[in-house]
Each structure stands twice: as structure tokens, then as C-alpha cells.
Simulated scan of single mutants.
Amino acid sequence: MPESYRPHLRKDDAPQRTSSQSVVSNTAPGRARVSEVLAGKDVTLYTISPEQTLHRAVEMLRDHRIGALLVTDIDAKLVGILSERDIVRKLADAPGRTLPHRVEEVMTRAVETCAPDDLLRDVLQRMTDGRFRHMPVLEEQHLTGLVTIGDLVHFRLRQLELEALHMKQLIVG
């Protein structure tokens, strides 16, 4: 019998039911990308040249209240990263004589980077495995941002708050 001839049934009057558990709701956090984090934060890039002194770097870190500077050459190409941790290591090696050193003597040259389309869970795993807290974002070899472990945690907490709100709405109605 064709569907158009089906008689009206009681279930036709029932409101459509929803489910709090679905493939989308259970996998959405795993599909979040770096670009989503960058969209919700100030993407000002604080850079320093390799020839600058650690004194200048420390002033920039203090003034901008940040934990790392991107080290770029004259063409704005990423050549390293200088973190508070790098400075502390140098301070331990040369107490009282640290600030006159050049950034290029202390910076981390082997910089781990990511792309805007990278999955957050992969970036977070790389940061955790490598024991670092800052990762520059490159798009076609151009700096487009910097994500920190704090950015990723804050983003995930906002996601969890939104999920909790959705659950509350489903329960309360």
C-alpha cells in the first residue's frame, strides 16, 4: 500500500523526541580545530628579532603579560621561540649576567608548529608529549597566531559549559 494511503496513527500526533547522546554530540570536541580557538582570542603576535637582548625580551614579556615571544627574521619568518622557561634556564647558567645575552643564544630553534586546520586534540597531545606550552600557528609558512595550553583548556571548558547548558535544557524542558 502506498504511503499516501496510510491511515492516521496516534504516533503521528506525538512530539518528535530528541536524544542527548548522538554521534555528533559525542564526537564534536574531537573535531574542534585550531582555527576555532584563534577565532575567539586576540591574535596579536608579539615578535622579537634574534639580535635583541634578553633584557628587551623580558620587558616585552612583562609589558604584554605573556609567556613567550615569537622570534622572527627581517622577512617575518619564524626562526625560533623564546619562552620564560628558556630565560630561566639561561639565568641558572649565567646568574647576574643573563640580560645582556642575545635572544638567538637562548631561544628554542626547533619550534613545533601547527596549522589552523589541525585538530585541537592532536595539538594538545603534541604539547603534552613535548612538554611545552606555546605553539605558533602557520598557514602556508606565514605566522597567523599562537596557541597556548591555556587557550586550549579555556576553549574546552567553554565547550563543556555549553554542553552542560544543553543537557540542563533537555532535562528541564
Rank of each mutant, 00 (worst) to 15 (best):
M1C: 09
P2A: 14
E3Y: 07
E3T: 07
S4E: 10
Y5L: 14
Y5Q: 11
Y5W: 14
P7W: 02
H8C: 02
H8T: 05
L9G: 02
R10L: 15
D12Q: 06
P15S: 13
P15I: 12
P15M: 07
T18I: 10
T18Y: 12
S20Q: 08
Q21L: 14
V24F: 14
V24L: 12
A28F: 14
A28V: 08
R31I: 01
A32Q: 11
A32F: 13
V34T: 10
S35E: 15
E36V: 00
E36I: 00
V37E: 00
A39D: 12
G40D: 09
V43L: 04
V43F: 00
T44F: 07
L45M: 14
Y46A: 02
T47H: 04
T47C: 15
P50I: 00
Q52D: 07
L54W: 05
L54R: 03
R56W: 04
V58R: 08
M60A: 12
D63H: 11
H64N: 13
H64A: 08
H64R: 15
I66T: 00
G67S: 11
G67T: 01
L69K: 02
L69N: 02
L70N: 03
V71Y: 09
V71F: 11
I74T: 12
I74V: 14
D75W: 08
D75K: 12
A76R: 12
V79Q: 08
G80N: 05
I81T: 10
S83C: 08
S83M: 04
I87G: 06
K90I: 01
L91Q: 12
L91N: 12
A94N: 09
A94P: 00
P95C: 09
T98Y: 05
H101D: 06
R102Y: 08
E105P: 01
E105H: 10
V106G: 02
T108N: 09
V111D: 02
E112Q: 14
E112A: 15
E112P: 00
C114V: 13
P116D: 13
L119G: 04
R121W: 09
L124F: 14
Q125N: 10
R126A: 11
M127V: 05
D129W: 09
F132R: 03
R133L: 05
H134G: 04
L138Y: 10
L138H: 08
E139M: 08
Q141D: 15
L143H: 11
T148G: 09
G150W: 03
L152H: 01
L152T: 01
R156Q: 06
L157S: 09
L157I: 07
R158L: 12
Q159F: 15
Q159V: 00
L160P: 00
E161Y: 06
L162R: 15
L162Y: 11
L165D: 11
L165Y: 10
L165V: 07
K168F: 11
K168W: 08
K168A: 15
Q169R: 14
L170V: 06
I171T: 13
V172T: 10
V172A: 12
V172N: 07
G173P: 03
G173D: 01
